[in-house]
């Protein structure tokens, strides 16, 4: 009986539930290698496009194996009229000392002898200004975490689909006298399903889908890890911090790209049964993103008095 029992246990453990893993292939091939465009144009920056190519999923990712294309022809059109060719720089960068204009549609066409040509376009949206920044306060956002809460007001232009992005930067002085500069790590209130925090929380994204043409107040949280003991909070309390907020009206494609990219990084390698995220692209015959944005930048410093934290609002 004992030997039978052992036999059964051995059987169950070794044979019955043994799954096996085998290598199916190391040769998954896409139909063809394609060009990739990465660019976000803005009236505040010179016209810049990065061109690279797709790599096989099994290719090693090393600096010796960079996918940049440095010998492509990159043509730029403004409202359908040829404007110029971009000049090639290192690492796949193509630039021209030209600042794109709001309201104009820019199209890029990239040609290379080894690849199908790719094209993409975007319209630079108009700037939307911040009306007023809110006060700042320290709030408990969950059992262990406090965060600084603030917000701002703006008027959404009526009758058009708008997509927005907020980024924030803080420059502060610590006890040793050193200055630090870091992007704010945003947190979004759970109740607001139209607000997305992306790219490790350094961007806030939202659309005016449900709030078109209204005065909109966006509330947000940001913090420095365990903020109550953090250097950032201390410097804010001591009046040694300056914030810079970048409020951008962005193109729809750029919004969708950032949104799907956020999902991609959140879900990658988390569940073998989960369906992978398809990253949004507006590049015809290729991949990547050709986005556009127009940014209103606000410098702001908050005053803190005693245990209560009050801020003074302000626009640009």
């Amino acid at each position: 009986m004992k030997s039978l029992l052992k036999l059964i246990i051995l059987f169950l453990l070794t044979v019955t539930f043994s799954g096996c893993v085998k290598i199916l292939t190391d040769d998954l091939k896409a139909e063809k290698t394609k060009l990739v465009i990465n660019s976000v144009i803005s009236p505040d920056s010179v016209f810049t496009v990065n061109v690279s190519k797709t790599a096989n999923i099994f290719d090693e990712e090393t600096l010796d194996n960079l996918p940049f294309i440095n010998d492509a022809e990159v043509k730029v059109f403004e409202n359908g009229n040829f404007l110029f060719n971009l000049d090639s720089k290192d690492n796949g960068y193509y630039r021209k000392d030209y600042y794109p204009l709001p309201g104009k549609k820019y199209t890029v066409e990239v040609y290379h002898k080894d690849f199908d040509p790719v094209t993409s376009g975007a319209v630079i949206p108009g700037v939307v200004k911040v009306k007023k920044f809110d006060t700042i306060s320290l709030e408990q956002i969950d059992q262990y975490t406090s965060a600084l809460k603030s917000g701002f007001l703006f008027d959404d232009p009526p009758g058009e689909d708008n997509y927005y992005m907020l980024q924030g930067e803080i420059t502060y002085l610590d006890d040793s006298g050193a200055f630090y500069n870091t992007f704010l790590d945003f947190r979004v209130p759970d109740v607001d399903e139209n607000l997305y925090a992306v790219s490790n929380g350094d961007k806030l994204l939202w659309s005016d889908k449900l709030i078109d043409g209204h005065e909109i107040k966006i509330e947000f949280y940001f913090f420095d890890g365990y903020i109550e003991t953090g250097k950032m909070l201390k410097s804010i309390k001591d009046g040694n911090a300056i914030f810079k907020f970048y409020f951008s009206n962005i193109s729809k494609d750029y919004f969708l790209y950032l949104k799907t990219e956020r999902l991609y990084y959140e879900t990658a390698n988390t569940d073998p049964f989960m369906e992978p995220v398809i990253i949004h692209s507006n590049v015809k015959n290729g991949y990547g993103i050709f986005g556009a944005m127009n940014t209103d930048t606000t410098n702001i410093s908050y005053d803190f008095n005693g245990k209560k934290f009050f801020g003074k609002g302000g626009g640009k």
């Binding site: 990465n38 790599a55 992978p276 990547g288």
Partner: peptide, 9 residues
């Protein structure tokens, strides 16, 4: 399945 990959912005 992903067949290829490319650089992100």
């Amino acid at each position: 399945l992903p067949f290829d990959k490319y650089l992100a912005l």
